[in-house]
Design a protein around this nucleic acid. Sequence first.
DNA 1: CGGCAGTTTGATGTTACTCAATTTAAGTGG
DNA 2: CCACTTAAATTGAGTAACATCAAACTGCCG
Lengths: 236, 236
Amino acid sequence: MDSISLCVTCPNRLTGFCGALLGPDEQRDGEPSGWQRFFAVEAGAQIATRRQQSADVLVLCAGWAFRYFQLADGRRQILQFLLPGDVVSPATIFEGNYLFSAKALTEVVVSGFVRSEVRGRCATRQGVQAVLATCSIAETRDAAELATVLGRCSAEERIAYLLLRLIKRIAAGNVIRDESYPVPLRQQHIADAVGLTTVHVSRVFGLFRKRGILTMSDGILRVTDRRRLEQLGSLR
Amino acid sequence: MDSISLCVTCPNRLTGFCGALLGPDEQRDGEPSGWQRFFAVEAGAQIATRRQQSADVLVLCAGWAFRYFQLADGRRQILQFLLPGDVVSPATIFEGNYLFSAKALTEVVVSGFVRSEVRGRCATRQGVQAVLATCSIAETRDAAELATVLGRCSAEERIAYLLLRLIKRIAAGNVIRDESYPVPLRQQHIADAVGLTTVHVSRVFGLFRKRGILTMSDGILRVTDRRRLEQLGSLR
DNA sequence: CGGCAGTTTGATGTTACTCAATTTAAGTGG
DNA sequence: CCACTTAAATTGAGTAACATCAAACTGCCG
């Protein structure tokens, strides 16, 4: 993970965690502010490793990544896909080492905030705590929903759930036409996220294609029957 | 859920969340302090329901309960078993309504703290924030580990993991002799916690018994081969 | 053109589910 | 104390869902 001198603009810095953390005065392009650093990470590279000590709080600025938990024998569970604006590991705001590992899916730019500074602002700056609470609540809700889906839902339901969650998050930050979403995932990632094998993921995609629900190729997910997808993948 | 006038002593109030929240001056037996109420809940009764509005932050004082998420068709996933001292739903400290439902396993005593007061103390009282952070981190870690186990582990591993987690928590607050733990769970609860059917849970217990790993009857779990159990159920 | 990573497909195996019957345990009222 | 009731656990047989193994196919890049 190389530190880059070029100052990269975090496209989502005005919203979410970054937005609350940085005052409006600091949210202009310009040289790094001293307690904020930027890193470029190449596709597929490790961003963080469980139990590793971390100097700062990482926030994803550009590209896709994922948080995961790996068992001793190599099996792994992807816990969350990370999109620009997401905190790589919210727990690092309070704790020195990572609870989970994280890897880059695409080329990625990560911003690191010095932890002590972040915590200082948590105490003093108006609104940071609220954002922190919201973020922490969202994290536990997501993890618990994932557990529910993994424990109680079929392969089709799991994949439908995952894709629905993803496209909602993608749509939140982008203009979407034709129910067509950029999703830079291999079937291996989907398998690791929903607790299946790649072979079975492929079969389910085949089924979805045959039934006219969706297709996925070239990193583009095209949803052709949103209603049916939601019948399968909504938890309510 | 009846409010009880009798003042019940929360045995764990000196540790964890309650301990940090209440000052040492308030930690004596006596009449309720005005912003803290107590409720008695009978075995099997609902303590909280998802999306229900909550006036206060509930903490379990006595008995066992569990948090769960229920799907529209009745399938449910138990997310965590709650022991005395546990916050029923940590998110309620910040949010008005429950993210998850909760039910009593045994007769239970729950203590309710007025939310505004809790939040006030979060801002001012030394140490409350740290405990809150620790508690929130533990919650996400547990949920993520659960997701990993559900997504990637076999039935035997799942049950071993669940029991190991439970006995660690039980042992933390009690004197344990003979690797023998009080566990007031039906096989139905275990099934709902690890994403299996009761029939299959029964078979796995039969296997564990035959192999001399553990037995469970009359609400007592007896571990006869801790090492083998840990080989199955440890994540490291 | 060959090589490689990712996907698809088929055949077969295993794990866990379903359904149904039986046993065990725990009350409950006479 | 004992028949009766009921909930929980166990067992067996058959089935469905998903895994495993292996081969073929696709698109891409050097």
